[in-house]
Nucleic acid binder design. Structure first.
Lengths: 351, 351
DNA sequence: GTGAAAGCGCTAACAC
DNA sequence: GTGTTAGCGCTTTCAC
């Protein structure tokens, strides 16, 4: 039966030393691992440690130069399935590599993002991973570039995961996936089924991820010599509710389409429900596709044709590359591929 | 144009002091905020800070007694929607209260959980929040109890969020929701529609959450004087794939049921797809209900009847109560209510 | 108003 | 093997 400390909250290495009748250095040594200490001393120290339920203060160790490295990641909202998968990848790999993980959800607030990064710099985080796209403005690039420089100067590293590069020369690691290419392939698939009036349920027009997917949508049309009707480009966000709302609106306005491309599977889910509510059959009356290939996509009815994105892999790679980075490593930029997963939500166009 | 430091990685308060021609204490004072410092000195210091892109080491501040408080939360896998929502609640509230958040996914590995908690104790985290149910064994309780004591002795706090108490006297804060009650109401609703042969697609029989829901299922039957067929109790985990697998098996084995109760919405989603694949209509041929009320539940077809659980609220409350705890606060135990959300996946039994 | 000195909890270089 | 000392980067008395 281990006796509990009287006041573990204050128990320090010196308390342990005192109780064991040795010096603090000795305690440090037995706890530290590989250092010759006599068996009996070690025993006494260990006993004192147990009695006091002592555990060394990690912060103190850190400033003494032997801390557990930490890694930070910041995302919009962990609640989105694709974010969650990236986060999971980051988290797993960090743990595997013996790093602690600090998180922050910004709820899309740029200031929060900035503040958090500064805090991470103060924490001397080994790397800061920005997860997911963002509103891309010149101002944003300028600020982020500065952050990247600061972090780099401090021996840390900024990682953009699922977010485009900042431009040449910025000391950042970027791991992204091909939104444009994926959307292109997806829309090409829809067009190949004969659809010509294809609705696009997009996100925030300033958001990089939304932009990439929209570009793919547009390019796929142009590649076929089709000039997409601007009225078919709807904007919202990446949530289920946005998809539902947008779809209802399109229906109410009497937009004449035979297929709809949703910017994410969540959006597609909401859209699907709106379609069902309107008594429309998918894909009989209208075809529908999503993007992300979240696990749930298979359970929609009909099972959703979508684009698979290796989110977990993305997260894992982000930490691996960031942590593997040394001052002479060239700045890395990985672009992961995606592929269309054909299921049952697309049918040939009627006419 | 801010001049960038030559080597910000080493720039310390003394570097700033030197550059500003003052002492370290003075720098500390101007950065610290409320302390009389002459305007010109302050200006010089601030300039040096900018020039060197200096930011005080948070770890050092911490051991000097003025750190940013930190809070840790550990869960199985952020990828599950309900976990994600709890995490989100925790994260938001922590941020609001000015705390940093450390995360750890255990992937269900008990040892990982233990190790992480110990690490958090070393980090002097203000509270450690264990999110989600777990396999409940005497061994588990003993260990967790010890952890709770250690944490308490160190002035920290163990919080069980969505996990049952450890027994009397343990210094823990527990915020849970009523699995049993929710399941009871849900199953009662199904039985009220005349169903008598109701399949239960459960989770790990040792897992507290799974157990609670299973108890609710059983009790609802008994309350009606029905003795549920043990063959109708299937066990798996809380994933979509588990639901799919279990449902297929039940179908293949020719189990004769008219309704199915899934332990989570994810399980229900997989089950629904399996039902569809078998050419069965829901709720025409068989009724189906889930648990958790994840956003997606509305987009299943038919929209899923389920139990709403205030996950975010749960997370928020967990941190609020934990952080509000003082040595003389009585140990709190909050049990949040749930309610059935009736949608379209249940129909009256045929016969 | 500002600096020198002590101290936070730890590790490491240097003695013995 | 083990203790003493210095030092990590910061804050905070305590003097002046």
């Amino acid at each position: 039966m281990t006796r509990k400390s009287e006041d573990a909250s204050r128990s320090t290495i010196r308390d342990v030393a005192a109780r064991a009748g040795v010096s603090a250095s000795t305690v440090s040594r037995v706890l530290g691992g590989d250092y010759p200490v006599s068996a009996t001393t070690r025993e006494r120290v260990l006993r004192a440690v147990r009695d006091l339920d002592y555990v060394a203060d990690a912060r103190a160790k850190a400033i003494a130069g032997v801390g557990t490295p930490t890694l930070a990641f910041v995302l919009d909202d962990i609640t989105g399935p694709s974010f969650a998968h990236m986060a999971h990848g980051v988290e797993r790999e960090a743990t595997r590599l013996g790093h602690l993980c600090l998180v922050c959800s910004t709820e899309g607030d740029v200031q929060r993002e900035l503040d958090f990064i500064e805090t991470m710099r103060a924490q001397r985080a080994a790397a800061v991973i920005l997860v997911g796209g963002t509103a891309d403005t010149p101002e944003y690039r300028r600020r982020t570039r500065r952050i990247a420089d600061s972090l780099a100067a401090a021996g840390s590293r900024l990682v953009l995961c699922g977010r485009p590069p900042l431009g040449p020369g910025a000391p950042v690691t970027v791991i992204e996936y091909d939104n444009e290419g994926g959307a292109f392939a997806l829309v090409a698939h829809v067009l190949a089924q004969g659809h010509r009036r294809v609705l696009f349920l997009g996100g925030d027009p300033d958001h990089t991820t939304a932009q990439g997917r929209e570009r793919g949508y547009l390019d796929a049309h142009r590649a076929r010599g089709i000039d997409p009707d601007p009225a078919f480009l709807l904007h919202g966000d990446f949530t289920r509710d946005s998809g539902h709302r947008l779809m209802r609106r399109a229906l109410k306005e009497g937009l004449d389409f035979t297929a709809v491309v949703a910017a994410t599977d969540m959006v597609a889910a909401g859209a699907l429900t709106a379609l069902h509510e309107a008594g429309l059959d998918v894909p009989g009356d209208v075809s529908l596709v999503g993007y992300d290939d979240i696990p749930f996509a298979r359970d929609l009815h009909p099972a959703l044709t979508t684009v698979h994105v290796p989110y977990e892999e993305l997260g894992r790679l982000a930490v691996r590359t960031a942590l593997g980075h040394t001052p002479d490593t060239p700045d890395e930029h990985l672009l992961l591929g995606t592929h269309v997963v054909v299921r049952n939500s697309v049918a040939p166009a009627k006419s």
